[in-house]
Nucleic acid binder design. Structure first.
Lengths: 255, 255
DNA sequence: GCAAAAGTTTGATCAGGATCAAAGATTCTG
DNA sequence: CAGAATCTTTGATCCTGATCAAACTTTTGC
């Protein structure tokens, strides 16, 4: 340990600066190039998890990072009163395995059957040392995460359960669009209690929230995992969102 | 860009990996070395803001980044129903000015009289292109921000107003410790409504929350801006936090 | 294909906060 | 320093969502 990096701990968020780190419209979800992906792939092994299986737990020694290939994963942490707080839902191409002090900072569980690439931290680290391009892309991912985390906080700061729910649906709709999938119907792979733990409301409130939106003619629930927004303007009145364009790259920045 | 450091992975939605980006115990609040700071300083100008002054607003053209020198700044964004959502409080040495698509993503206001360095984005960008060290440190800051944003989300996911308030106090206490200031008394430079907007509860609820904690003998409120925790274990029972050590650097990573 | 398990809806009750409102403190400002 | 503007406390009322619990429904495992 020599001159260490030094970060700050401010509370405040510190870096709220910079800018060029915004994904280009076309590649919202894939921040790495195919090339980079391939180079990393040779250093990794494929791992599979069954639905419900725990991939790692908070506090476990963090010796590897994962790149989700297929399926859905949820990251969560323990909250008081035996509850769980869902930090995020991870989709294909997401990287996960964040750690601090060599230990994972939260737990992850496969929500569906999952396949992922498991990349030893040591390998990634040595690769990063020589690959500035890769490092830059990881920086982009960090910025993206930061934006997402703040959006999550914003969602949680809403007072009404229905608003939180609507914002949650909106989030998933946008994710789906970013993935290039048809968006006429929103696919929610997780169950009601996961939604509750993400939105900070109870299971029962989630259910009632869906009913309320249905009764008001805002959404139509096909089945447990499929919802369609039938009254767009009513929906936007609830989320408070006018149109809101997807993030886009403005300035290439590097090279 | 040559030898780069050793970041970590991405997550959640994307980067949730890697590790070494954890502040070293000693210099929690200063991510940049004095050297780097000096090099950036020559490219910046000093700006001053009076208490209550708006530094920039969401949507303004983002042509500069700021490094807070003295005073307290708050970042916020507009929420439905004319409310404001406080994203963070910024203290000395924090960088701010995050943007996307060339526009600031939120607004900032001086909570007290403020002095800051104003650094044109173009200058920073060109500097970053040649300075891997600096880039690494900025990466550290991003990781830190991400942790903070997630902590904020966690706080907001709590059901009880008193719990949120206690977690908020805990946060400020830790910040103060990180800054190397005596921590027997917590200094809260913002007013009650700012606290409410950060914790997602109303002004009135903040006030009642302080009273509740006082009545229960957990805290003692000296005045508007000074609180002391008098019953530590009772306090920790509320926040759900046992001891919780401050983040620390595990692996130097780079030369 | 049928039980058992898991997940979901719905009900009834209750408490914690939101809201609206007014009175008390503090801190500006001229 | 007095009056104004701001911030904070406290009150009264109402409503949303938490809780506890029971009836349904869908999925899973044999």
């Amino acid at each position: 340990m020599s001159k260490t990096p030094t970060p700050s701990g401010g509370f405040g968020p510190s870096i709220q600066a910079l800018d060029p780190w915004t994904p280009s419209a076309g590649r919202m979800r894939q921040l790495l190039t195919d090339d980079e992906r391939a180079r990393l792939a040779v250093m990794s092994t494929i791992v599979r998890f069954k639905k419900g299986e725990i991939i790692y737990q908070e506090g476990d020694r963090a010796d590897a990072v994962f790149n989700l290939n297929s399926g859905i994963v949820t990251t969560y942490s323990k909250a008081p009163r035996g509850r769980e707080h869902v930090v995020a839902f991870l989709l294909a191409d997401d990287l996960f395995g964040l750690s601090a002090e060599g230990l994972y900072t939260n737990s992850t569980r496969a929500l569906t059957a999952v396949t992922a690439y498991r990349l030893p931290v040591a390998a990634l680290r040595s690769r990063l040392t020589k690959d500035a391009e890769l490092e830059f892309h990881i920086m982009c991912k960090l910025c993206q995460e930061l934006r997402q985390a703040r959006h999550h906080a914003f969602l949680l700061s809403q007072r009404s359960a229905v608003t939180k729910l609507a914002m949650f649906l909106q989030l998933f709709e946008q994710l789906q669009i970013a993935k290039g999938e048809p968006a006429s119907e929103i696919h929610l792979p997780m169950d009601r209690s996961d939604i509750g733990e993400y939105t900070g409301i109870t299971l029962a409130a989630v259910s009632r929230g869906f009913r309320t939106l249905t009764i008001r003619g805002i959404i139509k629930v096909r089945d447990r995992h499929h919802v369609r927004i039938v009254d767009r303007s009513g929906f936007e009145k609830i989320t408070g969102d006018p149109p809101q364009s997807p993030t886009q790259l403005v300035e290439a920045g590097r090279n």
